[in-house]
């Protein structure tokens, strides 16, 4: 008598099941702008990794004869800088430090900030309030000032620059992680998981992480460009990377005196910073919309 009604609703969806990530990939590939940005970003990363093979000259080798050669000089397609070093090679080598200074602090801050934010968001209540109020203290300072202050206190150097940038990025990432987690925690599938008797740790691992890491990661990618610009700013001020290392921000600084003599040459590091940050930004925009399930 209680026969299973198996003929039910079999008409509604006829297509094959598709995984979540394959759907994301498919939507991402459809987005021409995002794919182009991804190619540029990927190209820059490859360029940084293979700098010794790609660069035509030694980036440290300069002669005063060639100083401030214009763009298009024989053998020096992008000219030479104020110490006569090949601009193209320095820009290529510069990608190494600049990208490193852009990506690393964000990655570290992503790990630490997510942990703080997810814990605060899932715990809720006063734990959440206290954590978030403490993080709010950091918001009192503009991020540039904060980075300069920390770097300045610690002294110049790549490591100190990294550290100060990481500290700057933890609060915003934690804040995003907290808000995403709070939103997810209120959904009924979390309630259903709690009704299954699972522990908080199991629920976070099985049901929360997968749903919040994506959005947090997308946000973090958008910070890479900010981080690069801040790192460049630190170098420009003489904090962070120090000469003669090639780094775009530092190059911008050292070339600024040449702006009246060779304006195009002086602008080149700025162009690289702009190109990198805009491609990372568009990449994260593309990721964001590709991860939107309801498309």
């Amino acid at each position: 008598m209680a026969v299973a009604q198996t003929d039910i609703e079999t008409l509604a969806t006829a297509d094959k099941p598709r995984g979540y990530w394959s759907g994301v990939g498919r939507r991402f590939l459809k987005d021409k702008v995002a794919v182009a940005a991804g190619c540029v970003a990927g190209g820059l990363i490859l360029m940084a990794i293979f700098a010794p093979w790609v660069a035509p000259q030694d980036p440290f080798d300069g002669t005063m004869i060639r100083r401030l050669s214009p763009i298009g000089t024989e053998g020096y397609p992008l000219g030479a800088d104020e110490l006569g070093r090949d601009m193209l090679s320095r820009l290529i080598y510069g990608a190494r430090l600049s990208l490193f200074m852009g990506v690393t602090p964000v990655l570290i801050a992503f790990v630490i900030g997510s942990a703080i934010g997810i814990a605060a968001g899932y715990a809720g209540g006063w734990v959440n309030s206290i954590t978030m109020r403490v993080l709010d203290v950091f918001y009192a300072f503009p991020s540039v000032l904060l980075a300069i202050a920390i770097s300045g206190a610690l002294g110049a150097g790549i490591l100190n620059g990294l550290l100060s940038l990481t500290v700057v990025f933890i609060p915003p990432i934690a804040r995003v992680a907290e808000s995403v987690t709070t939103a997810v925690r209120k959904l009924e599938y979390i309630e259903a998981a709690r009704a299954s008797g699972a522990s908080a740790f199991t629920i976070v691992r099985a049901h929360v992480l997968g749903n919040v890491l994506g959005p947090i990661f997308v946000y973090a990618t958008s910070l890479i460009s900010v981080s690069m610009i801040l790192a460049a700013g630190l170098s420009f001020l003489g904090l962070g990377v120090s000469p003669p290392n090639p780094e775009w921000g530092l190059m911008l600084n050292t070339l600024r005196n040449a702006i009246y003599v060779q304006p195009w040459l002086a602008a080149l590091p700025g162009v690289m910073i702009f190109l990198t940050s805009i491609s990372f930004n568009m990449l994260s925009d593309g990721l964001r919309s590709a991860m939107d399930i309801k498309q």
Binding site: Y20, L187, Y189, G210, N211
Partner: peptide
């Protein structure tokens, strides 16, 4: 004691088969 919720979509983890 188990429970079934009103919103069939919100009560399923979107990343879980």
């Amino acid at each position: 004691v188990q429970m079934v919720f009103q919103d069939s979509y919100a009560s399923l983890n979107p990343r879980m088969t």
